[in-house]
Design a protein around this nucleic acid. Structure first.
Length: 277
DNA sequence: CCGACAACCTGTGAGC
DNA sequence: TGCTCACAGGTTGTCG
C-alpha cells in the first residue's frame, strides 16, 4: 500500500480540492471492502461540508460538518492497492472504482482499490472514538514518537525489531518499505530481537524513522506499480531506496551486496555489512 | 500479553 | 501463448 508518505502526499493533493467544499453526493459501487462500507453512508455525506482533510497514520480523515445535525468523519484507508484522486463528473468509473465523493463544484474524489483491503467508514462525533483510531500508536513525525517510546515498547518483546516498527500500535504509519529503509539508515539488523536494542540505538532508530519518512514525503512518496498522489502525480522516492527492492545490488554506503530474506512473510532487505545486531 | 500464521482479494511477472 | 505459482505498499483475527 501506500504507507504514511503516500497517504500524506494524497492528503496534500486532495486538501485544496475538498476543504470547505460541500459534498453533493456520495456513490458506493462496492460495499465489500476489508470491512463493509456502512449502510447509510451516502445519506450521512450528502450535503455535508468538508471542514478539513487530515491524516492519522495511514488513515485519511474527512472532517465533515453540517448546518443541522451531527458532524462526523469519513475515514478512508487505502489498504494495499487503494488510490484516491480527483476526476470530473463525466469520467466513467472503471472496474475497481468503488467509491466517489462528488462535490458542489463538479470535482469528484474517486477511490480505486483492486484488492479491496481498504476501508471507507463513518464515525459520528470525535473520530478518535473509532476503535481503529483509538488503538493506534503515536504519529512518527511528532515528538510523541521518540527513542523513549521505542525503548519502552521494545523491552518485553523478542520479536524482530522490524516487526515492532511495523506494528501500528507501537508507531503509526510505518510499513514494509520504510521499516526497511529506516533500519538501514540506523545501521540496525532487521532481525535483531527488539528487547536487545540499546537505549542509544532506540534514539538512533526513532531519528532514522523520522528522517526516512520526511524525505519520502518531500519526494511525493514512492510510486510502485501505478500509485499516484491526490494531484495525480507520481512520487519519486523509489529512486532513493537504499535497500528495499535492491537485493543483489551493492550497498550505497559500503558496496557490499544487499541481501533479502523474509520476516513474517514480508520482503526484508538489508546490508549485512552496515546493519549490525 | 506475546508471537506465529492464515485470511481477506486481485493483478502481475517470472518460469516453464 | 498460456498455465501456475509466488508475491505485492496492510491489518485483523485466531490459536497456542
Amino acid at each position: 500500500m501506500p504507507e504514511l508518505p503516500e497517504v500524506e502526499t494524497t492528503r496534500r493533493g486532495l486538501a485544496p480540492v475538498v476543504e470547505h467544499r460541500v459534498i453533493r453526493r456520495a456513490v458506493v459501487r462496492h460495499r465489500g471492502l476489508r470491512m463493509p462500507v456502512p449502510r447509510g453512508l451516502e445519506r450521512q455525506l450528502a450535503g455535508a461540508r468538508v471542514a478539513a482533510l487530515s491524516r492519522r497514520g495511514k488513515y485519511l480523515l474527512f472532517e465533515c460538518t453540517r448546518e443541522h445535525g451531527e458532524s462526523g468523519t469519513l475515514i478512508v484507508h487505502l489498504g494495499m492497492s487503494g488510490r484516491l484522486w480527483v476526476v470530473d463528473t463525466v469520467t466513467p468509473a472503471q472496474k475497481h472504482d468503488h467509491f466517489d465523493l462528488e462535490f458542489d463544484n463538479g470535482s469528484v474524489v474517486r477511490l480505486r482499490d483492486p484488492r479491496r483491503f481498504g476501508l471507507v467508514l463513518w464515525q459520528a462525533g470525535d473520530p478518535f472514538r473509532h476503535a481503529l483510531l483509538a488503538a493506534i500508536g503515536p504519529e512518527p513525525l511528532t515528538p510523541a514518537f521518540d527513542g523513549a517510546v521505542l525503548h519502552r515498547e521494545t523491552r518485553n518483546r523478542s520479536t524482530p525489531i522490524k516487526l515492532v516498527l511495523m506494528n501500528s500500535h507501537v508507531v503509526a504509519g510505518v510499513g514494509n518499505i520504510y521499516a526497511n529503509e529506516a533500519l538501514f539508515r540506523a545501521g540496525i539488523d532487521p532481525r535483531l530481537a527488539a528487547r536487545r536494542l540499546s537505549r542509544a540505538r532506540c534514539d538512533t532508530l526513532a531519528t532514522a524513522v523520522k528522517k526516512t519518512l520526511g524525505l519520502a514525503i518531500a519526494a511525493g512518496g514512492s510510486t510502485l506499480r501505478d500509485y499516484v498522489g491526490g494531484d495525480g502525480r507520481a512520487g519519486y522516492f523509489q529512486n532513493q531506496f537504499l535497500v528495499y527492492g535492491r537485493a543483489g545490488e551493492s550497498c550505497t554506503r559500503c558496496g557490499t551486496a544487499i541481501r533479502e530474506l523474509r520476516l513474517a512473510q514480508r520482503a526484508t532487505c538489508y546490508c549485512p555489512q552496515c546493519q549490525k545486531r
